[in-house]
Design a protein around this nucleic acid. Structure first.
Length: 809
DNA sequence: AGCACGCCGACT
DNA sequence: GTCGGCGTGCTC
């Protein structure tokens, strides 16, 4: 038997399966989807089996060395899906395969070091080199990476040792898996024999008798820690019985349960509203018999979409099928998870970025083994390896975070469509502010459309006031809080109601400027201003991580009038304290939510009324639901509007609508105040009137006129290199080649300098293809991109290809 | 991507 | 004379 293996060399040359012979001993463990280690040239690599065959065309096949998992980590569907992704998003097959398994299964390569006879005999005149050799002698084999850390001169000594043949090196392929094991105790003999043994124990062996008596009453296996705490005995007692051969100790794989010790109360099942019922009945149509049933669920904030999800999910599980719920990372809050855990309990696996790698792996294995029926997680949970998938939900489907911003640059919505078709599953795209793409699809009748226009309990949508900050300035108000916002804050403080205050970070972060000469602190490696971080008095670059100390005087002119501009959350917090003495602010941003569980804790504090204001960035824009919040302030509603991106208006509308939706979700009426310098912009106007439809009509007109999605599709190419003339030359040559290759109807813009013209000392140029949905375009581009690989090798120019880009930078 | 092979300059 | 620079080519 032969296996087609895609190996861990993710470049164009090797981006294809290689044939390997399967040795008889491994044959029972090799499947499509298995992870194996194989010899590749002089090296030993990890690879994935993508096919099996009785024969091979290849003359000299080599043998698979090892199978790395007992069960294959990927299903056949995943292997198929990886192929599709690699074609659609122009990445290598291996990259696509690898992105579907948890990080711990990504290969780690290391080398083992052994001493040769010459090495054994070697005596160094240097005492520390002598110590180095003794270290190897005592512990061999020693891992290469470990010894490099232990000895400062390891590299030189290893190099010399190899040359002089004192050491021998062997490469190993492993993974980062550390499976948690638990110790299980079970009786080794019959109950009668246990009873007999109990009588024979010495009188002083009281503890051992207690343990035996447990097993006599409950004849069966029990985890050791459980037994110890149950009986209040030490493991000494257990050990004695194991030694006597009465009990058996075995290590079994256990799962780390990130939710252990927490209980989930099932949410009371409210009777459905009429509109919820209509939607549920409609979606269920797609389940009997199962067909691919894509639909858009447009429901205003607070209309009860989650209830619909829960119900459809329950029916899916009743059919014996599985479900995936995708949510944006930032709304993957305990609140959200608890509702599903409450309903489906241990049938739910949650994939969370805050979980440790090991915990993620455990959750993933539960899915792979079919031990759970529901997977909840952010983008990558779309790859949950279920085998009988009946339902995929993308909540907040308009969210940009569903697009992965590294290779493979897939969109979870597209993958949902692929998997939905494969499994004849229901795919629900849910949002209060659907993406232009999805709403357009629905309007054209290409996907089913459901709507929920009313909030549960007929609560009115909050009243929105748009405040013109230019007028505020004219009236002499130079603070970041307008008069109406000030009044409303005071009003809530008096009534003891809570406030959510939203500040968009993007395009509005703190930068440092000298008021004497106008100097702005820039990153020396990227064309971007540095951001001030008050917590450790540093300036940081958000792109490359460059950090420097806060300047006391202007490095250009020596002036002391160097000030922090812009409005970061920290600054807002200070200002709040200044204008509203005694106000209790809970600030949520990267600085305050860094630690594990901090995010959760802050929200809990706010819920318990330990703060008057919840102040934050994007992360507070969605999913949160606090009964006592009656005011939402948006400090700079238009901060997104001026970004060089065709989705700026759409993003602004979505953000303002989502943030506004945080107010008045319960008995108390809500109010939203939007501060802006663009009062008349349609995205702000329609958002303030909760008028999605009108916004859509206006925006789709713009998209049509300017050949943007959903009418045209985009592919963005970014070139990066230190050398600008070379960059220009090569990118122009590439563009010319593309123009010659793409079919008529598709056209190319650029190349031009990228909006961020330099990152990590590399200058950036970009060009963009626009095309109507023509199946010939992507293969044509792929061909040019593959041919470019030689150029890349020669010149060192980096090229990234982003199909369906979400961000234009 | 690595790692080998292979063909030309600066040293013991 | 050799050591070592990194260009080119291959990996079932």
């Amino acid at each position: 038997m032969f296996a087609q293996v895609v190996v861990d060399v993710p470049v164009v040359d090797t981006d294809r399966p290689f044939d390997y012979r399967i040795p008889e001993s491994l044959a029972p463990f090799v499947f499509v989807g298995s992870r194996v280690s194989v010899p590749f040239g002089p090296r030993k690599l990890q690879g994935f089996v993508v096919g099996l065959a009785d024969t091979s065309e290849v003359e000299k096949t080599r043998d698979i060395l090892d199978v790395l998992d007992v069960e294959p980590p990927l299903t056949e569907e995943m292997v198929w899906l990886a192929r599709r992704i690699s074609e659609r998003y122009m990445c290598t097959y291996y990259t696509a395969l690898q992105s579907m398994v948890p990080a711990v299964l990504r290969s780690s390569y290391d080398k083992q070091i052994f001493l040769t006879a010459a090495g054994e005999a070697f005596v160094s005149v240097l005492s520390d080199e002598q110590a180095f050799y003794e270290y190897i002698r005592n512990r061999q084999p020693v891992l290469w990476n470990k010894i490099m850390k232990e000895f400062p001169f390891a590299a030189a000594w290893l190099d010399e040792g190899l040359k002089k043949n004192r050491i021998r090196v062997e490469q190993i392929v492993g993974d980062r898996v550390t499976k948690k094991t638990i110790t299980i105790l079970s009786p080794a003999v019959s109950v009668e024999e246990l009873e007999a043994a109990q009588g024979e124990l010495s009188k002083t062996a009281v503890r051992q008798k207690e343990v035996l008596s447990h097993f006599i009453h409950f004849y069966g296996p029990i985890p050791q820690p459980e037994l110890l705490s149950l009986l209040g005995v030490s493991n000494q007692a257990v050990k004695g019985l194991v030694d006597k051969g009465l009990l058996i100790k075995e290590e079994v794989e256990g799962y780390r349960d990130p939710f252990s010790g927490r209980t989930f109360t099932p949410a009371p099942k409210h009777p459905f509203t009429a509109q919820q019922k209509t939607v549920i009945d409609g979606i269920v149509e797609g389940m009997n018999p199962p067909v691919y049933y894509p639909c858009l669920l447009h429901g205003v904030t607070g209309s009860g979409k989650t209830e619909v999800y829960l119900e459809i999910m329950e029916r899916t599980i009743d059919q014996g099928r599985e479900a995936i719920l995708l949510v944006p990372e930032i709304s993957l809050t305990p609140q959200m998870v608890n509702r599903f855990k409450g309903r489906f309990g241990s049938q739910v696996a949650v994939m969370h970025s805050r979980l440790s790698q090991g915990e993620r792996y455990d959750e993933w294995r539960k899915i792979r083994r079919g031990e759970v029926k529901v997977a909840i997680g952010a983008r990558s949970a779309i790859f949950a390896p279920f085998q009988n998938l009946g339902l995929i939900i993308l909540d907040e489907e308009h969210e940009g975070s569903y697009k992965q911003e590294e290779t493979p640059r897939y969109h979870a919505r597209t993958i949902a469509q692929y998997r939905g078709m494969h499994h004849h599953a229901v795919v629900i795209l849910g949002s209060a502010t659907p993406s232009m793409e999805s709403y357009h699809e629905a309007k054209k009748g290409r996907i089913h459309f459901f709507e929920m226009r009313e909030r549960v309990g007929n609560r009115p949508l909050p009243e929105v006031t748009v405040v013109d900050m230019r007028e505020e300035l004219r009236d002499g108000n130079r603070t970041m809080f307008s008069k109406p916002l000030m009044d409303s804050i005071n009003n809530r403080l008096e009534k003891n109601e809570q406030i959510v205050m939203f500040l968009n970070r993007r395009g509005f972060s703190t930068f440092v400027m000298c008021r004497s000469c106008g100097y702005v602190a820039q990153c020396p490696h990227c064309d971007i201003s540095l951001t001030y971080h008050r917590s450790n008095q540093t300036l940081r670059c958000h792109y490359c991580g460059y950090t420097e100390r806060e300047p006391q005087i202007c490095p250009e002119c020596g002036s002391e009038h160097i000030r922090f501009f812009g409005t970061g959350t920290q600054k807002v917090e200070e200002e709040l304290a200044r204008y509203f003495p005694g106000i209790r602010v809970i600030r949520m941003d990267v600085d305050t939510t860094g630690r594990k569980g901090a995010h959760e804790k802050l929200l809990q504090d706010f819920r318990e009324g330990k703060g008057d204001v919840l102040l934050g960035t994007q992360m507070i824009a969605k999913g949160l639901d606090f009964p006592n919040v009656t005011l939402v302030g948006v400090l700079a509603a238009d901060s997104l509007l001026n970004l060089p991106d065709f989705r700026a208006a759409e993003r602004t509308f979505q953000l303002v609508t989502q943030v506004g939706g945080r107010a008045g979700r319960h008995e108390k009426k809500g109010e939203v105040i939007l501060q802006t310098y663009n009062t008349e912009h349609y995205s702000i106007q329609y958002a303030s009137r909760h008028d999605y439809e009108s916004f859509f009509v206006e925006e789709i007109k713009q998209r049509y006129e300017k050949n943007y999605p959903p009418y045209y599709r985009l592919v963005l190419f970014t070139f990066a290199h230190e050398n600008v003339p070379l960059l220009v030359k090569i990118s122009e040559r590439f563009a010319r080649k593309l123009r010659e290759t793409i079919p008529p109807g598709a056209y190319l813009l650029g190349p031009v300098a990228s909006p961020i013209a330099r990152i990590k000392d590399r200058y950036r140029f970009q060009c963009m293809i626009k095309y109507k949905n023509d199946p010939r375009v992507l293969p044509a581009i792929h061909q040019v991109v593959r041919a470019f690989d030689e150029e890349r090798k020669k010149t060192g120019i980096m090229l990234t290809v982003d199909v369906d880009p979400q961000m234009m930078m």
